[in-house]
Nucleic acid binder design. Structure first.
Lengths: 351, 351
DNA sequence: TGCTGGCGCGGTAACGTTCCCATGACGTAC
DNA sequence: GTACGTCATGGGAACGTTACCGCGCCAGCA
């Protein structure tokens, strides 16, 4: 009657059509108790008939829970973060929540703006890979959140999900040792990232356990990009070296760049130079040779972060730090020197 | 006074602190007219003091505009779609809107669920790459939307943003002809995708213009994945062929798979077999040889789709179809035969 | 028979915002 | 001096939902 033509049906329309009050209609649709099966059915049918769909904005206003989660990552076009986003997305959908996705480009100002947007959208909580050193904005965030990725370690008080870098580095080191390599040269990220510190600490620890002086390791740094890896590798190649060089890159993009630089220099990978990466991005498979790498469980990280966020939201104050194990993906960019016979090209090329 | 401890400040708190009514406070903060500069300043200061942030849920209820947009794409971990998402994200942020991102996995049921979620979240509109043939759910969607990608063409009534497949195919064909190749073999997507039809139509048209009978083109199909391309290439190689083969893949992932299959068969790319792709995903650069490809402007597509969506939302009924031009990225997976046999045209590359 | 309690249902308030309308003060024109 | 227009401000309603409270009914029990 008062139903204007172009309006979405509300619960009042449903109630009118079912001949009940809106309270009853609400009870029927939310599955509350104290309602006759007969009435419930009547309401459900009416709802279907008018094409009713609950208005989450109104529910959010009333209940204080918007059913939305935020995700703030460095860049959705980075394959690793896309995996994380996908894991989070699926896990959120499982619980009937939606995901607001933002890319910060490692930029403090952008991150702050995104956090503000999330607050204004009244998300129930957020998963954040914080830009280095941006303590202030996180302190002020004011909503439940879970940290994801390497930067988590600085925030003692908050839940976090990351990969077990120490275990991952060990996996990589053990692998290259088992293939007959000695201490690797390193390509690491820029100075101001915690990821770099964690990677280096793990490498050093592992070296010491094997009575290797970490100081002998050659190291170059670069941005966490293909170009960064390429340049770092060039500098590494410019140094004097004898024999087969093995390079452990702290990130797959850099590792791929390193392989490109090797080829550029007229050398072969893995025959002349072996490369092992860290991340496990799918496109590592496309490289030639396929990138041998330590894979972080990106998708699972996203999923577990959402799980953790939900318990955070429900005030289970179980502030937990989760470190998921990494696994080794062997593809072909690391030569097998353990057999004394020389490398065979075919041996390196399996997929 | 009535301000409970753990509640976010509302406009009423601001008004109380500024000593005005909530109407005045609202006027001051929305930048409306009819307000003394003095009062406005007082309110703004009070807002800053209590840390007020506008509740978008409430604004959405009142105004009917939630400030959120939906994005439904096949898979955020697909590099091309990640680019699109990023473009949409940035453009939405420009207008102060947030983006809800969903992955449909080319699954009709998932897509339907996502569209329902978007309606319930009361997004202002959505950008959708629809799963093939899912007319019904789109018809019933009931909100402004813009289509993105190849499936758009089936929906005459709706705005859409895509790449100019015809121009892109021409770019690719011209390039391979200019490099001395003849009619290419094709690797295309599954039967029920419109993208396949458009790709094929463009190829055929181009052939006819060059007096080539499209029927002579060898063709294999596969899923739009690396594995799909690999298998298609294997089948292509299993056919009898003479001389250098050139393969035009309808998608970069398939093209990369094709290169892998070539290597697998003990052949070399581009020396024995040339491959050209379509999409322009960044990881095409990592492949060896680097993938020569026709690049769609993914990021710009996302941005333009958001622009179009806004004019759609504001009832500018300018139902427009935008086709953005592709560009060629030359990397190395296509051999240059022009030096050896400048005028080789048809027949040279048949499989 | 009368009281109690459980149950199904309806009315209403509240979430936070914005917009419309009313009010009152002031200035201006007759 | 009165009438009227302008403008800053306040009051209240509305967006759609759900939780709380109260009412009437019926069964069970003293």
């Amino acid at each position: 009657m008062s139903k204007r033509r172009n309006r979405r049906p509300t619960i009042i329309d449903v109630a009118e059509r079912a001949g009940v009050s809106k309270s009853t209609a609400a009870r029927a649709l939310t599955g509350s108790s104290n309602i006759t099966e007969e009435t419930r059915e009547k309401v459900v049918k009416a709802a279907a008939a008018v094409g009713y769909e609950r208005n989450h904005l109104a529910v959010g206003m009333r209940s204080g829970r918007s059913g939305m989660l935020g995700l703030v990552i460095p860049d959705i076009t980075n394959p690793f973060w896309a995996e994380v986003a996908r894991g989070a997305q699926d896990q959120a959908a499982e619980a009937g929540s939606s995901l607001l996705v933002f890319s910060s480009d490692w930029d403090v100002a952008k991150e702050a703006a995104h956090l503000r947007a999330l607050r204004q959208a009244r998300v129930d909580g957020a998963i954040i890979n914080p830009v280095a050193d941006n303590f202030d904005d996180l302190d002020r965030f004011g909503l439940p959140f879970v940290l994801i990725g390497s930067s988590a370690e600085r925030f003692v008080e908050t839940s976090s999900v990351g990969s077990d870098i120490t275990q991952g580095v060990r996996l990589g080191m053990d692998h290259l040792v088992s293939k007959g390599h000695g201490a690797p040269s390193l390509i690491v990220g820029p100075k101001n990232r915690l990821a770099r510190v964690r990677f280096l600490r793990a490498v050093h620890q592992h070296c010491i356990e094997r009575d290797i002086d970490p100081a002998i390791l050659a190291m170059e740094e670069g941005e966490y990009t293909v170009e960064g890896g390429k340049q770092a590798m060039r500098r590494l190649l410019a140094r004097d070296h004898v024999g087969h060089v093995c390079v452990f890159a702290a990130n797959d993009m850099m590792a791929i760049g390193a392989i490109m630089a090797v080829r550029e220099a007229g050398l072969r990978c893995p025959e002349d130079i072996s490369v092992i990466g860290f991340d496990g991005i799918p496109s590592g498979e496309f490289a030639w040779p396929g990138l041998t790498t330590v894979a972080k469980p990106g998708r699972e990280m996203g999923a577990r972060a959402v799980e953790g966020l939900f318990s955070e939201i429900e005030h289970q104050p179980e502030h937990r730090r989760i470190y998921l194990p990494c696994r080794l993906i062997e593809r072909g960019s690391l030569a097998d020197l353990s057999a004394h016979a020389p490398q065979r090209v075919a041996g390196a090329g399996r997929v």
